[in-house]
Design a protein around this nucleic acid. Structure first.
Lengths: 260, 260
DNA sequence: GTTGCGCTTGACGCAGCGTCAACTTCTAGG
DNA sequence: CCTAGAAGTTGACGCTGCGTCAAGCGCAAC
């Protein structure tokens, strides 16, 4: 005796948009799942619109859990088709092995990269060459696994030469920015001045050629210019305080132009 | 004055197969990298064959390191194009965020899966025949693609190697195990007896087709046979106490034969 | 001559949808 | 009742990073 809303065709089913909202998938995905036979709607209204019932929602739940775990849709199909906790269990057991392996892989990668970055940020007298060399060495264990010893040894020997060349080109390109900074210092411009902000924009553009920093990472980079002796010398030998000026100006500039 | 090997066209360059062997990538990948402009050969001989020099090897090395980190090829192209340690390091900094996020994601997934397994183990209500039948049908086609894991590769290979007859025999094995357990109970064998231990070995072999249990998980599984009503009934309908006997025997067997 | 290896280009295929495009249908407003 | 707009539909191509044929060419051995 409870009042039903407009008994046209809706009993307890949800249309595709409602399911999309509830589960967070797109309607396109639901159509895709229908197309590949992974999840059919409970019924379609005469005009072709898809409607989903509770059973389909549960099945979708199951699908999404497995998908979240990185399982392929075909495998998911077989698992949900079986609709059997024990099958799922067997699958999960296998999957757990893969997941922990991936976790460990990423943990190793992250720690390697972090150490590389640390050695850069804290490196007292570390040159670009040494950084690069160290970077390369960090990957030796993995590289040796994949590539074999002789290949790694040979590439290690050649690594410096290439890096040296690239380093020189980088410094040349960069010098314009640094000299502009030096000029700004001698004239006494402040970080928030249009002139210095323009230099920062140039610096950022230079950096953005290959990589798009966020506000946070851009601030981090310019902070690094101050913290790291090797970098700071690069700036300050043009004009004392250049690194600090760049950092301060970049801090302001990032707040104005970069999304945090 | 050092003797050169056949000065036809080879000075110090490597052909595509040699590069493939050294670096572990396929020749197809090298051609792909050439096609998309990521890594061109140093020169091509008149018949169209690609040859790579030391510089190309180093560039490839750089590419592969970045690829290993999960960087997309387009981004890799920009980074190696820059050929600048600072850019590379900036990228690493950026990438570290993604790596730790991925690591955490997988860690969360792994723990979620582990807990899901736990709860499923307690709630599972399937007979082994159904498990086996469903498993066989479901994993035959596609699991191998998704799961490069050794365990699944091995289990599928074993399953296929069994052939139709062998597969059927394997299906029968479980019943043999259960009936042998029943017989052992009726005769009054103890868990540590050679007879019961042999049954456990058979059971473990049967189970190993689906995943490779450690001592811990094998004990967990057999414990589940006792804890879960439906499983226990499967065993105990053959002979009362079969599940408990299997668990106790498996506990001993695991300690003797499985690494913890 | 011919067999066979190793290379070449060209093409299609795969997952898992995103993203138009072109069309229909339902609903609300005037 | 007409009309605009929102939201649905099918169909198609696009994307990444190659794997995997297919067909052909050059070179060396038999």
């Amino acid at each position: 005796m409870t009042p039903r809303p407009r008994a046209t065709s809706a009993t307890e089913t949800l249309d595709i948009a409602a399911v999309a909202r509830l589960t967070g998938v797109t309607s396109r995905t639901l159509r895709h799942y229908d197309a590949i036979g992974l999840l059919a709607p409970s019924h379609t209204s005469p005009d072709g619109r898809r409607h989903y019932g509770q059973a389909e929602l549960l099945r979708l739940q199951h699908i999404l859990v497995l998908r979240e775990l990185g399982t392929g849709l075909d495998t998911i199909a077989q698992i949900v088709e079986a609709d059997d906790p024990t099958i799922t269990l067997a699958h999960l057991r296998d999957h757990l092995v893969g997941l922990t392996a991936e976790r460990d892989r990423y943990a190793r990668l992250a720690s390697t990269v972090a150490r590389t970055i640390d050695s850069l940020e804290k490196g007292t007298t570390m040159s670009h060459e040494e950084i690069l060399d160290g970077f390369h060495r960090q990957y030796e264990p993995e590289a040796r696994e994949r590539w074999g010893d002789d290949a790694v040894d040979r590439s290690n020997a050649q690594w410096k030469a290439l890096g040296k060349d690239g380093q020189q080109r980088h410094l040349d390109t960069h010098r314009e920015v640094v000299e502009a900074l030096g000029a700004a210092i001698r004239v006494g411009f402040r970080p928030e001045s249009d002139e210095v902000q323009a230099i920062v924009a140039q610096h950022h553009e230079w950096l953005s050629l290959f990589w798009t920093p966020t506000a946070e990472t851009y601030r981090g980079i310019t902070q690094m210019y101050v913290d790291d002796e090797r970098f700071r010398r690069n700036y300050d030998e043009i004009a004392p305080g250049a690194a600090v000026l760049l950092r301060d100006a970049a801090d302001i500039w990032a707040g104005r132009h970069l999304s945090s």
